[in-house]
Design a protein around this nucleic acid. Structure first.
Lengths: 197, 197
DNA sequence: GCAGACTCTGACCGATCGGTCAATTAGCGT
DNA sequence: ACGCTAATTGACCGATCGGTCAGAGTCTGC
């Protein structure tokens, strides 16, 4: 085995397979994606997929684990530095993560129910609940829950499935999208601060 | 054949099958749902499903067609009565439809890309584009697109997958949800009217 | 150049997929 | 009670599913 960390064949193949798998999982669903199709997309044989990953479930776990870890890290930083950490910063970083891991987020949000037995999905569930608490700051009214849910689900939808509605070449760049998302999501989570609770 | 319109066996069975199918399509995806499982859920044999519907695709079409028709009707009424029709009313009626047809909306929004060859999905695509135009009123800035996408996708997420985050019995009733959605979505689509375009 | 590990693949397995079909059962007009 | 139609079903089909396995190809340290 090469002691050098430079892209060994193993790492490169595994990355290609994870990328191809995530794309399929996000578009046709986990159950609707076949190992054969993932292998074809990545340019390998079906057997090779099961050489790098013990099972279809293990492949999904490996594919979305980086996204979950990213959210856990951001959340940890925000919760530990309770003083300096402003809520606006948290929103900005979460938006960055949504853009970076859009496919993984989409898979989790739209199929998390049917995949709840997978450990990494359970981890993501915990992270989302903690994120909701951090964002809503102890106020757990129905309004706050709705605002959080719309912001999260809406952003995830916009970044994946919603792209099919953008007419041809009108779809905004990632930078435009990041800017708009940061502003609008912050606005959604911070209502006009009406005197009522 | 009974001349009476009172629930003939045919209609009742077809309804049960459509309902069971829609639930599965929304949770595990169209490709991930088997006719066998739909039949089991509804209490029929797999052959019976294919007696009532020509194919798996035909079953999906029949199951989400009422939702598409509902959206087309609301849109038609709004666009024809251009004078009296206020935008707030449109939002209210769309929210009602989202609540009534939440599973169909979820299927369309999360799997519309991979099902775009089905005629009813194409119809729904047209309807959504027209809805976006009606809601954004000719202003098609990136911000407006993002606001519309977040509102639509967020509401759909909240009404289906998002339910798994509500702790136990804390999840709000449909009436609470309808109320919150109407207010918050109207607020999202009508930003603080900053002087900038 | 040889040995041993690493990577990749085709052949194969039982199970399940969507779909067809002939036969059986249930329901209704007469 | 009879006969016709509509409703339902089990047996069956080829294809594909996730997964196993033994072997071929490839690379590296010595």
């Amino acid at each position: 085995m090469p002691t050098d960390a430079r892209t060994t064949s193993r790492v490169r193949a595994a990355d290609e397979l994870k990328h191809a798998a995530l794309e399929q999982f996000a578009t046709v669903g986990f159950a609707g994606t076949s190992l054969q199709h993932i292998a074809d997309e990545a340019g390998y044989a079906k057997s090779s997929v099961l050489y790098h990953f013990a099972s279809k479930e293990a492949l999904l776990e490996a594919a979305i684990e980086p996204a979950v870890e990213g959210f856990e890290d951001v959340l940890e930083v925000f919760l530990s530095a309770r003083r300096s950490g402003r809520r606006g910063e948290l929103v900005d970083r979460v938006v960055d993560l949504l853009l970076e891991h859009r496919e993984a987020v989409h898979v989790f949000l739209t199929q998390g129910q049917s995949l709840s037995e997978l450990p990494v999905i359970a981890r993501a569930n915990v992270a989302v609940r903690r994120l909701a608490s951090a964002v809503c700051e102890e106020r757990e009214s129905v309004d706050d829950q709705v605002r959080f849910g719309i912001a999260l689900g809406g952003a995830a939808f916009l970044l994946t499935a919603g792209r099919s509605f953008a007419d041809e070449s009108t779809l905004p760049s990632d930078d435009e999208m990041r800017d708009a998302l940061r502003r609008i999501i912050a606005e959604i989570l911070t209502p006009a601060r009406t005197p009522s609770n």
